[in-house]
């Protein structure tokens, strides 16, 4: 799972800004996000509704429809190629090929009138120009690879004849047909039961080990992060508020938001103690607070947080937080829980 720091950078995102120009104003859904993904690693992007994590994922493949727009000055480079200046055709050829995506709701991501085998085979036909026969064989092989029992028969089934877990496996099979270098999985287990979630996470891990696929896993569940991630981005208010290796993040979270999330989670074995909460809710993306976007929910906020927006800065080596007080000794009250 762990990757040496020197590993090849596969995807590089710099100052990504995706704004939605709506009647209610400009929603700055993603607002200055920068990160790298290295070959073969799992990067988890964690955040709540409205944090901008899904829009970030869609932006990587330029899947943003008006009124949304990736603002000028954003930079996305994949395998050294600048995706912002690439033509629509070039990006289309990347999708499902070098970069694949898996969505949260497997039912709506599959076409109900085609068999799952047809849908997996179609990917091979589009990108590989494979013959009908070869594509079908490849589809059956992929279904077998993602752990679908009796794949030859299952390939002839329609999506509605399968369970949610099986459908998610089909989507993963579709994503893996072209052996992508990068797999973007947007909440792939959120709609699934916990035992099925365990199966899917296991599958993603084994796929990665076997093919060296890099994975961007988008989730709201810190438990999933701990299980799957090598490195983590914590998003809030359209920005990355903390970036760290998974061990460092859980061992010493630096941003007050991350700390709050970890404390707000009920854990097995904890008993019925009162949960610590983060007051308030995520503000709408049309009206982020001035200065630090977390300040009106933050227990540590002081006057500087209102005046001055903090930068994402390294607190210790390769552990960065977007907070004025990160890295400075905290008042005892805020540090204890």
């Amino acid at each position: 799972m762990s990757t040496p720091d020197s590993a090849r950078v596969l995807l590089s995102v710099e100052n990504l800004r995706t704004w939605f120009h709506t009647r209610d104003g400009v929603a700055r859904a993603v607002d200055g996000v920068s990160f790298d993904v290295r070959a073969g690693e799992t990067l988890c992007v964690v955040g709540e509704s409205g944090s901008g994590k899904s829009v970030t994922a869609l932006s990587l493949l330029r899947l943003i429809d008006p009124p949304g727009r990736i603002e000028p000055g954003s930079r996305i480079a994949f395998e050294g190629r600048d995706l912002m200046t690439a033509t629509e055709e070039e990006v289309r050829r990347l999708r499902g090929n070098r970069i694949a995506m898996v969505f949260q709701e497997p039912m709506s991501a599959l076409n109900p009138v085609f068999t799952v085998g047809d849908q997996v085979a179609e990917v091979a036909r589009i990108h590989d120009g494979a013959s009908r026969r070869a594509a079908w064989d490849r589809a059956v092989e992929m279904l077998s690879l993602v752990g679908i029992p009796d794949p030859a028969a299952r390939a002839r089934q329609y999506p509605h004849e399968m369970s949610g877990g099986m459908r998610q496996r089909v989507l993963i099979a579709m994503a893996l047909v072209m052996n992508p270098a990068l797999l973007i999985a947007d909440e792939p287990t959120t709609a699934l039961d916990v035992t099925i979630q365990a199966q899917i996470l296991e599958l993603l891990t084994s796929v990665q080990e076997r093919f060296g696929t890099a994975i961007i896993l988008i989730t709201h569940d810190l438990g999933v992060v701990a299980e799957a991630a090598d490195r983590v981005l914590v998003m809030y208010g359209g920005q990355v508020v903390e970036r760290a290796a998974v061990r460092d993040l859980f061992a010493s979270p630096q941003h007050p938001y991350t700390q709050g999330l970890l404390r707000a989670m009920p854990r097995v074995g904890q008993g019925r103690d009162r949960l610590l909460t983060i007051p308030g809710t995520v503000p709408p993306p049309t009206a982020w607070p001035s200065g630090c976007r977390f300040r009106d929910r933050c227990p540590l906020a002081f006057d500087r947080c209102e005046r001055e927006a903090p930068e994402l800065t390294n607190v210790v080596a390769s552990h960065a937080a977007r907070c004025h007080v990160a890295g400075t000794p905290l008042p005892a009250a805020a540090a204890s829980s």
Partner: peptide, 12 residues
């Protein structure tokens, strides 16, 4: 909670 691109657009 599930986040969709749309959920980041407007107030509610």
């Amino acid at each position: 909670m599930a986040e969709t691109p749309a959920s980041t657009l407007a107030i509610e």
